[in-house]
Amino acid sequence: MYEFLLRMGDNTLVLGHRVSEWCGHSPVLEEDIALANISLDLIGQTRLWLGLAGEVEGQGRDADALAYRRDAWDFRNLLIVERPNRDYGHTLMRQFLFDLWHHERLADICLSEDDRVLGIAAKCVKEASYHLERSTDLIVRLGGGTAESHSRMQTAVEALWPYVGEMFTDDALDIEMDKAGIAPLPSNQRPRFDEALNITLSRASLTRPAGDFAQKGGRSGVHTEDLGHMLATMQFLPRAYPDARW
């Protein structure tokens, strides 16, 4: 259960931080505000997941301790969320692929037999559906925009494609969570994800990449080097000044 909660909370934490890196740098003011707000939602969701993870673990660690005092190999997020921002199209494509998965995943977890898990999922799924509406709109607009925006979106989906498969791979922990009635198997979502993805890509005049090669490892603590660089920034202050207060 603890590991499952880390997986949920680390996804939103890592992506929330990545998205916040745009704050003050986005191409237009509205986008800057939108990304900062999405980041805020994701960090808020992280507090709920990691807060419960700390309670379940029972070692006296709260959400902050889990966020700021673990090293890369202790993180259980999907690799896609730690991918660097690159250009704005790449950031939005990453967001869209994540939102599409996240929304379905949370909807599935709303069936949890654990009241605490269900409560968090029911809270987060509403925000995730708003994020998905927005990222779907933007993918369609940029995919069907200028030749330049179209080519950047196509490049982005191809670069991120190897990180999609990991979202739907069941491992021993997933099977255990499914049997315990805590969360259904991630693989259940794949047909729904594919259907929605194909519709949006076709509205955006983008081509779905071929092949199903999937990079894996994030959910068991094997990460790309980008996560370490990100944590070095994110964790610097609380590590340099432990227990600092504003």
Partner: peptide, 8 residues
């Protein structure tokens, strides 16, 4: 109850 989960 919180409104948005990240609402400051």
């Amino acid at each position: 109850t919180p409104t948005y989960s990240g609402c400051p």
